[in-house]
Computed example of a mutant assay.
Amino acid sequence: MGFTADWLALREPADHAARDAGLLQRAAQAAGPEPVVLDLGCGTGSTVRALAPHLPDGARWRLVDNDADLLDQAAAGPGDHAQVYCCDLAELDKLPLDGVTLVTASALLDLMPVSWVYMLASRLTVPFYAALSYDGQMGWTPDDPQDAAVTQAFNRHQLGDKGLGPALGPRSVETSAQVFTQAGFDVAQADSPWVLGPDQARLQAMLTQGIADAAAEAGATDAADWGARRAAMTAATTCRIGHGDIFARPRRSETEGTHAHD
């Protein structure tokens, strides 16, 4: 699957439908009357497109990614209200936090090690909204005898090193919520599952191929056959891929839009 522009565009409608509306609204309110939003791993700007309609006119964006081409696409929406930063998320001390009122991330925490989440939580003094982290739960209707085994293998694969150390994978939502709570934040959680029907057969096909490939790498010997069966059934299949959202707000913050510090 990867993080190509085509994959990100294909998944965006499912992402937008899955986001928990209550936490999205709380994040928008917490950004304050003059929002400055720092989006980590912004991709093509899906978080911008999801959150911007709920923010006041003139909201400013600081978009961070390590792919310059994706950054250019992300910045096209906010235009003059966006600044782009092509940098490695491992370098948290270089994040442009000064003046930020909200930090966001989407489909990111499950790729990160717990040490990264601890470092991020220790640096933030403003609300943090992280959506669409994979939670390890997958299911299909109709089912297949190999669904459970493939899911288990895929989840093992998700715990592998994605470049910064062993990833949190399916433990990302619960673990990140605990980390931010320990760091002095009030944390709210909500489920945000993809529910993909036959009308999203192309997304299902790409998704199941990626799951099968990862599961095979993790030792599921029947994963390729499972993927082929699933691909042939997408026109009559509904699948549910579990994700979770968190909204973390510093307990010491008494007003909306408290600014961050470097």
Rank of each mutant, 00 (worst) to 15 (best):
D6S: 09
W7A: 07
W7G: 02
W7Y: 12
L10A: 10
E12D: 06
P13N: 14
P13S: 15
A14V: 04
H16L: 10
A17I: 03
A17G: 05
A18P: 05
R19I: 08
R19S: 09
R19C: 07
D20A: 14
D20E: 14
A21L: 12
A21W: 14
A21S: 14
G22Y: 15
L23I: 09
R26K: 12
R26Q: 13
A30E: 04
P33Q: 11
P35Y: 09
V37K: 05
V37H: 04
V37W: 00
V37Y: 01
L38D: 05
G41T: 00
C42S: 07
G43Q: 13
G43C: 11
G43D: 15
T44R: 14
S46L: 14
T47A: 08
T47K: 07
T47R: 04
A50I: 00
A50N: 03
P53K: 10
L55P: 01
P56V: 15
P56T: 10
D57A: 15
G58R: 05
G58A: 06
R62P: 05
V64W: 04
V64A: 02
D65T: 04
N66P: 03
N66Y: 12
D67L: 09
A68F: 14
A68P: 06
A68C: 13
A68Q: 15
L70S: 08
L71I: 10
Q73L: 13
A74V: 06
A75W: 02
A76T: 07
A76Y: 08
A76L: 12
G77L: 15
P78I: 09
P78R: 06
D80H: 11
D80Q: 12
H81M: 15
A82Q: 04
Q83H: 01
V84Y: 14
C86S: 13
C87G: 14
C87V: 10
L92D: 08
L95H: 03
P96C: 12
P96T: 12
L97D: 02
D98M: 08
D98F: 08
D98P: 03
V100H: 01
V100R: 01
T101Q: 04
T101Y: 02
L102A: 00
L102H: 02
V103I: 11
V103K: 02
S106Q: 03
A107T: 03
L109C: 12
L109H: 10
L109I: 09
D110L: 05
D110I: 00
L111H: 00
L111M: 06
M112Y: 00
M112R: 02
M112N: 01
P113Y: 10
P113A: 10
V114P: 05
V117W: 08
